[in-house]
Simulated assay, not measured.
Amino acid sequence: MTASTTGHPWNAHTPCPSCGESSARVVATRDGKTGEALLTVACTACGLGRIDPMPTEQALADWYSRQYRQAYKAAVQPALRHVLRAGRNALDRWHWLARMQPVLAAPEAGPARNSLDIGASSGETVALMRHLGWHATGIEPHQGYAQHAREALDLPVRCGTLLEQIEHTPSASQQLVTMFHVLEHLADPLAALRKIARTLAPGGRLFIEVPNATRLCSPHYMFFRAHTLYFTQPSLHGLMQRAGLQVVAASEPDADNLRVVVEVAPAAPALAAVAIDRADTLVQAQQRRRWLPYLLEQLRTARPLHKLMARQEEKRTAARYANGRELLQSLYGAQGGQRGNSGPAMLSGRAFSG
């Protein structure tokens, strides 16, 4: 059988990494960035999207450590405008989390709480958490970006894959683990989530953000090699439940990026209670992606113009600073919220060491 069109029934080469089902439907047949053949399917049982066949963990590790940033970001280390953008994203996520989980944003007496950022990129979230008084560390698979975080920002960001490095994190040690645009890159998300759950302290939270695979985009944009998994809100929540985690806060189901905050569930959910979606959701979303509606929506919202203006503003703003440390110090300092004299000094060697 040859997969040719969106909606075509498919018996997958590798089973769904969430529920184990092999029955699927074709969503897309080529890489939206390169045009090369790439099969993306949606599970008929739980709705999770994935490429088929799934790559091995070792193949992914080798590619992300050396090639991912170059292939999709055209960079070995981040430009200052990328540091600015990532720093602003870190602030936006923290403000959302503080609204949804005020207990995490409340001042904490005594020793600093621990946080771990998985997929730390060039270290902007780790830097923000340290600014806020947390004892923050990070894990980043790309050698160049991890090196930048360590050397340019003096941050404790370890280079390696999630599955490699999470083993070095003590059990029940983290009050907060963050994972932004990482889950969609994994081959075995259940194993990863269960290992992360082991590191959460009692009452600890895991904060995840992934792209919403049903969002409006051009017909060939959504599916590409760098993303092994594709989520709707139900398939994301179902994966959390299968990993033994319960949702305590979530973004709206139609947001461009899906956010979820979870904690370790007191007991495994009954099968009937696990959130499920159907392959139809991703299939229908892809079938709705047509050039004319997409271009009309772009014209109506003037999104390309807004994006161009935003990029120009980023370049102008980033050009004011000599380096990433100075830029983040200004960005995070302008937000306030530092701890008093008992907390670590923002973006200093003392704050970023250890």
Score class of each variant (00 low, 15 high):
residue 188 D to M: 13
residue 242 R to M: 03
residue 79 A to L: 09
residue 12 A to K: 00
residue 84 L to G: 10
residue 22 S to I: 13
residue 146 A to E: 03
residue 134 W to N: 10
residue 19 C to N: 01
residue 69 R to L: 14
residue 344 P to C: 08
residue 172 A to T: 07
residue 11 N to A: 14
residue 264 V to M: 03
residue 272 A to N: 08
residue 334 A to S: 07
residue 258 L to H: 11
residue 11 N to I: 00
residue 272 A to C: 08
residue 84 L to C: 04
residue 351 A to Q: 10
residue 200 L to F: 08
residue 42 A to F: 09
residue 115 S to G: 03
residue 171 S to H: 10
residue 231 F to H: 09
residue 166 I to S: 08
residue 336 G to Q: 00
residue 269 P to C: 13
residue 27 V to C: 12
residue 312 Q to T: 07
residue 265 A to Q: 11
residue 52 D to G: 13
residue 324 G to I: 02
residue 247 V to G: 12
residue 84 L to S: 07
residue 297 E to G: 11
residue 89 N to H: 14
residue 290 R to C: 12
residue 72 Y to I: 03
residue 324 G to Y: 01
residue 254 D to N: 14
residue 269 P to E: 15
residue 66 R to T: 06
residue 123 G to N: 08
residue 73 K to I: 07
residue 186 L to F: 03
residue 296 L to K: 03
residue 254 D to Y: 12
residue 195 K to N: 02
residue 192 A to K: 05
residue 198 R to Q: 12
residue 308 L to I: 02
residue 71 A to T: 04
residue 243 A to Y: 00
residue 45 A to F: 01
residue 196 I to C: 05
residue 85 R to K: 12
residue 280 D to R: 01
residue 236 L to G: 05
residue 333 G to A: 07
residue 335 Q to F: 08
residue 98 A to V: 00
residue 168 H to R: 04
residue 296 L to E: 09
residue 148 H to N: 04
residue 90 A to K: 04
residue 108 E to M: 15
residue 204 G to R: 11
residue 262 V to T: 06
residue 193 L to F: 04
residue 126 V to H: 02
residue 151 E to D: 10
residue 236 L to M: 06
residue 3 A to E: 03
residue 176 L to H: 03
residue 89 N to Y: 15
